[in-house]
Simulated assay, not measured.
Amino acid sequence: MNLLRAERIKLFSTRAPWWCALIAVAAPIAFTALFLGLSGAEITADVSNTQLATSTGRTVALVLAVLAATADFSWGTLRLTFQAVPTRTPALLAKGAVVCAVCAVLGLLAGVGSWGMAHLVRPDADLSLHSGADWRIVFGQILTFALTGLLGVGVGLLLRSSALALAIVLVWTQLVEGLVLLIPKIGSDLYQWMPFYAASQFAGGDFTRTTLKLSPPFGPWGYLAYFAAISAVLFAAGVATANRRDA
């Protein structure tokens, strides 16, 4: 418990995580309000459409997670932590657990907040959660945000540099995954294996499958398992690397 408390204090001792948390929740809600408010009757408001911008929130949560890991190297606090906890793995696991928990809360607020905003903007639309898929689309953000946090901590521990780690995750999420589609012949097949495409397939809010007429290799829960495996591997690699190198 002391390790968890220490990691929580370290995480929120600077302004950057607070701003990231605010943006991760506010951006999807604001986009939902604008999208459904300005689209009018041309766009059918359904549960899936309320989550179109949660991928933006996940990206900001990813930034928060990366900074949570790399800030320790930048400020030298990880060295102090390792002096207090000579067996490093528990401290690193505590960091991952705290970031996962924070990101899970952000996912809950972003998912439910976007859905609630849609109710306010389009009160006549049927946005009730009628099926298990509807519940998964809204509340599945909890799992995808939490796993995104785990992935971000892993990348941060691997690369140690805030600038390098943020550059890689932002280029990947904002450019690489989309540009894969432009590869002749195999682009659409490769795209279906991209990690954040997998997250969107579980939690909804992704229009590329129907627009591009893709036939994904997994169902929603299969994609969640795939995304969880990638996140776990990167986090484990980060922990192993941090255990071997000097802080």
Rank of each mutant, 00 (worst) to 15 (best):
I168Q: 04
D134S: 11
G156E: 01
G154I: 08
H130K: 02
L147I: 11
I168H: 03
G132T: 10
I168Y: 01
V169C: 00
L151I: 07
Q141F: 08
L157I: 04
I142Q: 09
V169T: 01
D134K: 07
F145T: 03
F145I: 07
L150S: 07
T148I: 11
V171I: 14
I168M: 11
F139H: 10
L175C: 10
A133K: 11
Q174C: 09
L159Y: 01
A146L: 11
V169P: 00
A163D: 02
L157S: 03
G152P: 04
V153T: 06
S161N: 10
L147K: 12
L150H: 08
S128M: 03
R160P: 00
L129V: 08
W135S: 02
V153F: 05
H130D: 09
T144L: 11
V155E: 00
L127M: 07
L157N: 06
I168A: 14
L175T: 07
V155D: 01
L151C: 12
F139V: 15
V171L: 13
H130V: 02
G132S: 12
G178L: 06
G152I: 06
L147R: 05
G132R: 07
V169Y: 00
I137D: 12
A146M: 13
G152E: 08
S131K: 10
G149C: 12
L129N: 03
S162M: 03
L159N: 01
G152K: 03
V169R: 00
E177R: 08
L157A: 03
D134M: 12
G132M: 06
T148A: 15
R160Y: 02
L157M: 04
A133Y: 02
L164G: 00
I142S: 08
T144Q: 10
I137Y: 13
S131W: 09
A133N: 15
Q141L: 05
L143Q: 11
A167I: 09
G178W: 05
L170W: 05
L157E: 03
V169S: 00
L158W: 04
L170M: 14
T144D: 12
D134R: 08
D134N: 13
F139G: 08
R160T: 05
D134L: 14
L166A: 06
G149Q: 08
Q174E: 06
L147P: 06
Q174G: 11
S128Y: 06
A167L: 04
S162V: 04
A167S: 10
L166G: 02
G140L: 09
L151H: 10
A146P: 14
L164D: 00
W135T: 06
G149W: 14
I142Y: 11
